[in-house]
Design a protein around this nucleic acid. Sequence first.
DNA 1: CTCACTTTGTGCCTGCGTTCACAAGCGCTT
DNA 2: AAGCGCTTGTGAACGCAGGCACAAAGTGAG
Lengths: 222, 222
Amino acid sequence: MARLPVYLRALSALAESGVSTVSSEELAVAAGVNSAKLRKDLSHLGSYGTRGVGYDVDYLVYQVSRELGLSQDWAVVIVGLGHLGHALANYGGFVSRGFAIRALVDADASLVGADVAGLKVSPLSDLERLVRQHGIAIGVIATPAAGAQEVCDRLVAAGVSSILNFAPTVLVVPAEVEVRKVDMSIELQILAFHEQRKVSSPQQVARRLNEVLPDERRAVSS
Amino acid sequence: MARLPVYLRALSALAESGVSTVSSEELAVAAGVNSAKLRKDLSHLGSYGTRGVGYDVDYLVYQVSRELGLSQDWAVVIVGLGHLGHALANYGGFVSRGFAIRALVDADASLVGADVAGLKVSPLSDLERLVRQHGIAIGVIATPAAGAQEVCDRLVAAGVSSILNFAPTVLVVPAEVEVRKVDMSIELQILAFHEQRKVSSPQQVARRLNEVLPDERRAVSS
DNA sequence: CTCACTTTGTGCCTGCGTTCACAAGCGCTT
DNA sequence: AAGCGCTTGTGAACGCAGGCACAAAGTGAG
């Protein structure tokens, strides 16, 4: 399930705090879910809890990692090294969780050869070679929308079977290829939608904000 | 619904291509969803289609934008200007879709005063003042996990009611505050999970990749 | 040994979202 | 004017995930 990584993060935090045993209720709170749901999720991996006691944190970390396929490192290529690509390449959360960024690729010749997070940026023409050379199964697309589908096609053709797409496009891929999409502008739009349901307009937000602290100087002229 | 932004993007693309009318089937393909679902989603906004013809693209863009609350600009603050914060501040997709980044805040004194995407970075202590001054309803947290909850609390106390969280933590907020979470490392873990279901190990990926092009030099020693 | 307490694992129910399939409606052609 | 073909809008069935509530199972005290 998609919640396992959240559990894993909560469990890792608990393990580092020195907690050795945790109940489904405690873990559920830490992960922000219902305890029954959590128990049902964990029961799909097997019976790793002890009734009356709870779950052994270290053992559960191991089992969840195993289930997620994180007991070994997955090789990753990042295509597109704009601001976002840089952020991803430098993000420590990947390396520490079973992912190894093995190649950086960009179409912009002025970026090729640059050193980013300890790796040299390769030209787009090397994409296929790099994928095969490093046994890369996961590709990250951080290019502008215009180039995303072409990059995607080439990744798939080279043998990549999982793609994380940050470009604001719907990618077309064969059925056996898994794509996950992260679109920050869409997330913001969803927030705006809910925000609008509450207050109807940004002007009303300003008014509400002023009401919070009526004594302060009016921040926005009405 | 969470799909409206996807429709909006597809519609915008169609509008720019000069298409004036689109059927639910065509739009569904462009958005990557089922056509019945799309029709049902759109019917919740009202009857904006014409039977036998389809939907007027421009009119639908307007209606969806209105529903999403994008007909006006929403003020946004970005907290945390590491690589990710930089990427977000420079991302053109926000400005062009009804969002205006009005303030940048970071706890790191060496970043304060720097110019990022045409805005000056303010110290964390100015957070509350900036939120009220600009009538900011939406906060983006791009800090390390350690500081995220504190920043979140201060945003909420200042009056922000929607938060987009990029930090790998579960944020605790009052019920009336909407939080959306983007966690790239979790997305990668989900991909790894599915990848493992297909092939069991990265070594097998390497083997499979070699099989794709058996004539090439073996890339990974077995 | 027994009893009371704690916590897991799960059966069952409820509700929501998805999809199919079709009737209603619109425009174009004849 | 009338019929035909296309497309929307929606009723109804289906499936699945979420949550309640309880039985099963383990622990520790007396």
